[in-house]
Design a protein around this nucleic acid. Structure first.
Lengths: 220, 220
DNA sequence: CATTCTTTTTTGAGTAATCAAACAGTTATT
DNA sequence: AATAACTGTTTGATTACTCAAAAAAGAATG
């Protein structure tokens, strides 16, 4: 039985995997992101391994099997389509839809999901700029770099904001740094830890590295 | 903690209560509609009674407390708004939305629900003609009678179809007997167990009592 | 290399929901 | 009234998920 707990574990493991595709996901990391004690993660991982959804190296870490990854991508697809649907169709604020989608992603059927997808005209990105896994086929790979990697003077388009904290997302909104915006790095002062951006066509904002590295851009 | 299991019990108890508001709901009936063995119903009812959601007379039956009823109505409101939303906004067929709503009613937040309600312009009835409990205030009482109580020659408007079986709902659709339709009972032959209806402006159909009593009408 | 620290696993226990089957009341029937 | 039939309750087990705390394995450090 694929419970919503299992779906959440798979989704979280997939996302951790993406941060370093070569390495195994350590148990401690999994327990931390799932907000459970380590023993709980160990127990769950054993049953997921028995179901063939992941490979488990005791004291080494875990990695999803192709089957587990497919399931994780399906959950992620649901999550992201729902986020976009909540923003586009129901008019919720993009800062609050992540939490809502965390619950709904386990409740919408494939039929309802595909209706949402159709209504949204088969979108490729969610409101945060995260790519929506297609119903079938590979996940599109897209080379994004953090704002912190730009050279002064360089232009780029904001592609993704990788933080789900509503307060941060509201700040991004207020500052006019939502995905799709074109910016130019005007200056980077390492001593001040300040990235000064020009927002095109008009506007200017200064960010510290903590905020700047959450903003992923596509070089112009 | 109000789990979705608890929500389902309360909803089902409320609906059973409505069939005979004076009587207590017997345990056997509850177990049957919840599709659990009687012992499970007894166990659950005890914990619901301890939470103050219902009154339990051992070997007598149960009745929701005002608190339990309020919660049940909240679940029913979610269920029915979701059903209408699925039909109106996502274009699902009314015969299939009941099942979908059974899951979603436990997953949509109040915020999302009120957005749906607003988008649907604060509807008063779901696709089956069942009244949507208001966010606050009493449930509107509306005196409907089954088609079987009409006198030959009498006109009435179909108000509600009280069966969630997709096959039956599809038949209703095909026959043109959806809520809102005006009909006239042309003849009732008790021997043949046949109710012959004229569908206005045009059409004619004959129903047996099993089907006819599931169709509730408002006298014209 | 022996000790300490960190990470992970194991063990034991608890909660929510369920079933099977034994048991106990109630009502009905002879 | 005795027995049968029905309805409801109790008991004991199971599954999925969780925590707390003890134990073990590895890594780091003096």
């Amino acid at each position: 039985m694929i419970t919503s707990t299992v779906e959440n574990y798979l989704k979280r493991i997939y996302l951790e995997q993406q941060t370093d595709p070569a390495a195994l996901v350590p148990m401690g990391k999994l327990a931390a992101v799932m907000q459970v004690v380590p023993g709980t993660a160990t127990a769950m991982v054993k049953t997921l391994a028995d179901s063939g959804l992941l490979e488990y190296e005791p004291r080494g870490g875990i990695r999803l099997t192709p089957g587990g990854e497919q399931l994780a991508l399906h959950v992620l697809r649901r999550h992201r389509i729902i986020e976009l649907f909540l923003v586009e169709t129901l008019g919720l604020d993009w800062s609050e839809v992540h939490e809502e989608a965390e619950t709904l992603e386990h409740a919408v059927s494939d039929k309802v999901l595909e209706r949402m997808d159709r209504l949204l005209k088969h979108p490729r990105f969610d409101p945060h700029g995260d790519p929506i896994p297609p119903a079938k086929g590979r996940m599109p790979t897209d080379t994004l770099i953090p704002l912190t990697s730009l050279q002064p003077g360089q232009r780029a388009d904001i592609a993704r904001v990788s933080d789900q904290d509503p307060a941060f997302l509201q700040f991004i909104d207020r500052s006019g740094l939502t995905p799709g915006t074109t910016i130019q790095l005007q200056a980077h002062d390492p001593q001040a830890d300040a990235y000064v951006l020009k927002i095109l066509p008009k506007g200017r904002v200064s960010l510290g590295s903590t905020a700047a590295c959450k903003i992923l851009v596509r070089e112009a």
